[in-house]
Design a protein around this nucleic acid. Structure first.
Length: 281
DNA sequence: TCATCACCTGGAGA
DNA sequence: ATCTCCAGGTGAT
């Protein structure tokens, strides 16, 4: 029973998802056209449409993965500190739009933008006593005018969101085939979309398309590599990574952490942000 | 291929 | 109150 081992607070508050709110002892979240309610104790999980198992990645062999990524004392510390942290398998379109919005924005601001997007472009549904808005559909965002997106506070991201939705709508971006493709191919296709670079592609691949060798390297991860792993990955500095440097570093990271490097990333990211007392949702 | 720099917006800190 | 600075980056010179 892996459900019992997941820590819901920890998992929701790890920067993977944004459209979640805690009301009393329940977490209520939006995942595409689906709503999910999670409670830790006594554990319960319900959703309006899809199976909860898929979202919670119940098919992962979490014990095997933890053993596999615990390759040094730093990761061991991180996994020990947040033992119930898990990756989530999100709705790909929502994840894609969410991380395009994440560019140069705080977690709180990302949540605000996405909440406004749902209120304006999603549809209101009653679920379990709550009135909730679904995430906007592909065709809705693909056909809207930019101004409506600006009104949601997206700023310079508005044009990217519109173009990104159009790319899905016309079939240029097909999440099913990205899911089947290997990491490098899928990443290259995503990066053709304006507003998506290496880091955002990695987030989309890791959090919604089952690429556990995707390893998002953001500001925080760069600090972590510099602080704990400067001997393993020299040539990491505090300066922003160029595209090629990112790719070279990513290759070496996957060599070092292995096929579940993305899981390691999630534990390390959580550890360092908590250490610096950064806010989550 | 690399280094700079601008970019919308909301929130925190001076 | 008002200002500055920064936030899970990316694209154009």
């Amino acid at each position: 029973m892996q459900k019992a081992t997941i820590n819901i607070d920890t998992t929701i508050n790890s920067g993977q998802v944004f459209l979640w709110n805690k009301i009393g002892s329940e977490w209520i979240g939006i995942d595409g056209q689906n709503f999910i309610i999670l409670r830790q104790s006594p554990f319960s999980a319900k959703s309006s449409l899809n199976t909860i198992n898929n979202f919670l990645r119940q098919d992962d062999d979490i014990e095997g993965i933890l053993k596999n990524i615990n390759r040094d004392s730093i990761v061991r510390k991180a996994t020990k500190q947040s033992p119930g942290l898990r990756l989530i398998r999100q709705d790909p379109f929502q994840c894609y739009i969410s991380f395009i919005c994440s560019s140069n924005a705080s977690i709180q601001n990302i949540k605000l933008m996405l909440t406004k997007l749902c209120r304006r472009f999603g549809s209101q549904v009653d679920f379990n006593g709550y009135k909730l808005f679904t995430f906007p559909r592909v065709e809705t965002l693909a056909n809207t005018n930019i101004k409506g997106l600006y009104d949601c506070g997206l700023g310079f991201r508005a044009k990217y969101v519109k173009e990104a939705a159009k790319a899905v709508h016309c079939g240029k971006i097909d999440f099913n085939s990205l899911r089947r493709a290997d990491y490098k191919i899928a990443s290259g296709i995503l990066k053709d979309v304006p507003g998506i670079g290496n880091k955002i592609a990695d987030c989309i691949l890791l959090f919604s398309l089952d690429k556990m060798d995707a390893f998002p390297i953001d500001r925080w991860m760069q600090r972590i590599l510099l602080k704990y792993y400067h001997k393993n990955f020299d040539n990491v500095t505090e300066k922003p990574l160029t595209e090629k440097n990112y790719e070279r570093l990513h290759d070496r990271i996957v060599q070092y952490f292995g096929p579940y490097a993305g899981y390691a990333q999630q534990f390390l990211f959580k550890m360092e942000r908590d250490l610096n007392k950064k806010n989550w949702l």
